[in-house]
Amino acid sequence: GETKIIYHLDGQETPYLVKLPLPAERVTLADFKGVLQRPSYKFFFKSMDDDFGVVKEEISDDNAKLPCFNGRVVSWLVSA
């Protein structure tokens, strides 16, 4: 499998796309960081919350699996 991750960088209009050679349910924050090489950023991901619906959730645990929608991951990188 392959996972497409779209990421928005510090408010830039056009998002970036990276592809990881892993199925979406196995991709972790560490996998994503390894491709990006951007150490001083906070990582937020499109996520579903039972109370609020669609939210941007910050993930900082490198072992955390990334939230996935239709085989895609959507993220926002914010300068720390």
Score class of each variant (00 low, 15 high):
F45R: 03
E2G: 04
D31N: 04
N63H: 11
K56A: 09
L22S: 01
G71Q: 02
L77K: 09
S79G: 09
G71E: 04
A80S: 13
N70I: 06
D49V: 08
G71T: 00
L36I: 10
G71H: 09
R26G: 07
P21L: 02
Y7I: 02
V35T: 10
W76H: 00
G71I: 09
D62G: 01
D62L: 05
V35Y: 10
G11L: 08
H8D: 00
L36N: 06
E25M: 08
S47W: 06
E2Q: 10
A24L: 08
N63P: 08
T3M: 03
K42N: 07
D51L: 09
Y16Q: 14
R26E: 13
V35E: 07
T28Y: 03
F45D: 02
K33P: 00
K19C: 12
P39S: 13
T14S: 11
V54D: 14
F32G: 00
E2S: 11
K33S: 06
D10P: 12
V35M: 09
K33D: 00
F32Y: 06
L29H: 07
V78S: 05
P15Y: 02
D31I: 10
S79I: 04
K33A: 00
F52T: 14
A24G: 10
V78H: 12
D61F: 06
S75L: 07
E2W: 11
R26L: 11
Q37M: 12
I59M: 07
V27K: 07
D61I: 08
V55S: 10
G71D: 07
D50Y: 09
P23C: 02
N70K: 12
L17C: 15
L20M: 03
V54M: 10
C68P: 02
P21K: 07
G1I: 08
G11W: 07
V74C: 04
G11F: 05
V27C: 11
A64I: 07
E57P: 07
L77W: 00
V55G: 08
F44K: 01
E57C: 11
K42F: 13
D61R: 05
D31L: 02
G11V: 00
A30I: 01
K65S: 10
P67W: 00
D61C: 07
W76D: 00
A30Y: 07
S47V: 15
L9M: 09
F43H: 02
F32H: 07
Y41M: 06
I5A: 01
N70V: 05
V27D: 00
G11E: 11
S40M: 13
P67I: 00
D49T: 14
V35N: 08
D51M: 09
P39E: 12
F45H: 01
G71A: 02
R26I: 08
K42A: 05
A30R: 13
N63V: 05
Y7P: 01
D61T: 00
F45L: 02
F43R: 01
H8A: 02
F45N: 07
E57L: 14
N70R: 09
F44G: 02
L36F: 13
T14W: 06
R38L: 11
G11A: 08
V54P: 13
S40H: 13
S40A: 12
T14V: 11
V78R: 08
Y41I: 01
S60P: 00
P39W: 07
K65I: 15
R26T: 10
I6Y: 15
D10Y: 00
G34E: 14
L22G: 01
P67T: 02
F69E: 11
V74Y: 15
S60E: 09
A80L: 09
E13H: 07
E2V: 11
N63I: 02
A30D: 00
V27S: 03
P15E: 14
Y7H: 02
I6A: 05
W76K: 03
A24D: 06
N63G: 10
S75Y: 03
A24H: 06
S75M: 02
P67M: 05
R72E: 15
S40Y: 14
E25G: 11
V18S: 01
K42L: 01
R38D: 15
F52N: 15
N70F: 07
K56L: 11
G1R: 10
K56F: 12
Y7A: 01
V74S: 04
I59S: 03
K65Y: 13
F43K: 04
S75P: 05
T28K: 06
A80E: 14
H8P: 09
D49P: 14
M48D: 12
R38I: 10
K19T: 15
K56H: 09
D50C: 09
E13P: 12
P23Y: 06
G1D: 10
T3H: 01
P23K: 03
L20K: 04
P21N: 13
F45I: 00
G1N: 07
I6T: 11
P15I: 01
D31S: 05
D61S: 05
I5C: 06
L29D: 00
L17T: 15
V18C: 05
P39A: 10
V74W: 09
E57N: 09
L22Y: 06
L22Q: 07
D10L: 01
D51V: 11
Y41E: 06
E2D: 06
D10C: 03
G11T: 07
V35R: 08
F44C: 03
Y16M: 13
P21D: 09
L29M: 03
E2C: 12
T3K: 04
K19F: 10
K19N: 11
I59D: 00
Y41R: 02
V74H: 09
S79E: 12
Q37W: 06
D49G: 12
S47I: 15
S79R: 09
L36W: 02
G1T: 10
K65G: 07
E13T: 11
G34C: 10
Q37K: 14
F69T: 08
V78I: 10
G11M: 04
R38T: 14
V35F: 12
I5F: 01
V55Y: 14
G34W: 04
L77G: 05
Y7L: 02
A80C: 12
A30F: 01
V55D: 09
L20E: 04
V73L: 05
W76P: 04
K56M: 13
C68M: 09
E58V: 05
E25F: 00
P67N: 03
Q37C: 11
V74F: 12
K56E: 07
G34L: 11
H8R: 08
P67F: 04
Q37N: 14
V35H: 09
F44E: 03
K33C: 05
V55L: 10
P67L: 00
Y41L: 04
V55M: 12
F43E: 02
K42I: 01
I5H: 06
H8I: 03
P39D: 15
F45W: 05
D51F: 10
S47F: 13
K33V: 02
V78F: 10
V54L: 11
F43D: 04
E25T: 08
P15M: 02
V18W: 04
R26W: 02
R72T: 15
V18T: 08
G11K: 08
